[in-house]
Amino acid sequence: MNALPASSRFTETPAVRRKLRQEALAKWIFCAMAAAMVVPLLLIVGYLVVRAAPSLNLEFLLEVPKRGMTEGGIWPALIGTLYLVFISLAVSAPIGILAAVYLNEYARDNWFNRVINLAVINLAGVPSIVHALFGLGAFVYAARFGYSIISASLTLAIMTLPVIIASTREALASVPRSFREACWNVGATRWQTIKAIVLPNSISGILTGVILQVSRAAGETAPVMFTGVVFFKSVERGDLLPYYLNEQCMALSMHLYTISTQVPGVQPSIPFATAVVLLALVVIVNATAISLRVYLRSRKKW
């Protein structure tokens, strides 16, 4: 190596140039894959909005479907989806959060809790059509709720429960252990620790997890189609409380399916507008979740 003149030390050799070429190539491949994910999203959203444009107005939201669902708006489906989402999360959020608190803060590592964990994980992986059949058997027939909003909501609740448990556990686990240690060492009980320290510091994560399940509950078709959602239900325009809980209702996801495939002669922009509304609902909900998280995060520091 002494033969090397000092001026050419630390300069590129052919081997280095080859590595740099590979490096550049690798970077471009990864970048292209990331871009490939964004392109279809933009195309889908762009295409939907363009095709939906003639129908996109407030009237479309508030109006009921007319002339055998070939014209008019989507009010009954929109309000039905809100019913289903709200009731299902009102059931699954408290159960899921409390269960997660138990699993994360109280449960010791024994067979009983391992079974619960296994159940949660497996439940999260069950396809929604299976949930649909379960809901049909359990709520519609066995519990005699019939085809109704209550059956459909409970089915959605069962479906969202394991994910809420998982996301809540994650939020609880992110509270530093040193806070818990500080509590134990002044003799605080687990419940005092949870109440004073753990919950206040994980609430942003917990709420985010719950809110993200809104979009999932709103988008599912199979579970509600089997248990309480129908093609058509006659509702007053803009009526905020059109359904009783023991009645069937309409829902956006099902309505989209119906007008796209089952009804001939639908005004072409209507299915696209329905899809845009469903998409917008999801985006709004997710944006709410994110801003809530940012707001609550900004108030805590450690």
């Binding site: 500080a182 003799g187 450690w302």
Partner: peptide, 16 residues
Amino acid sequence: LRKSVGMVFQRPNPLP
């Protein structure tokens, strides 16, 4: 017991 026997840790752990 823990009320009478307190502990201080390596990293200060004030509660939030």
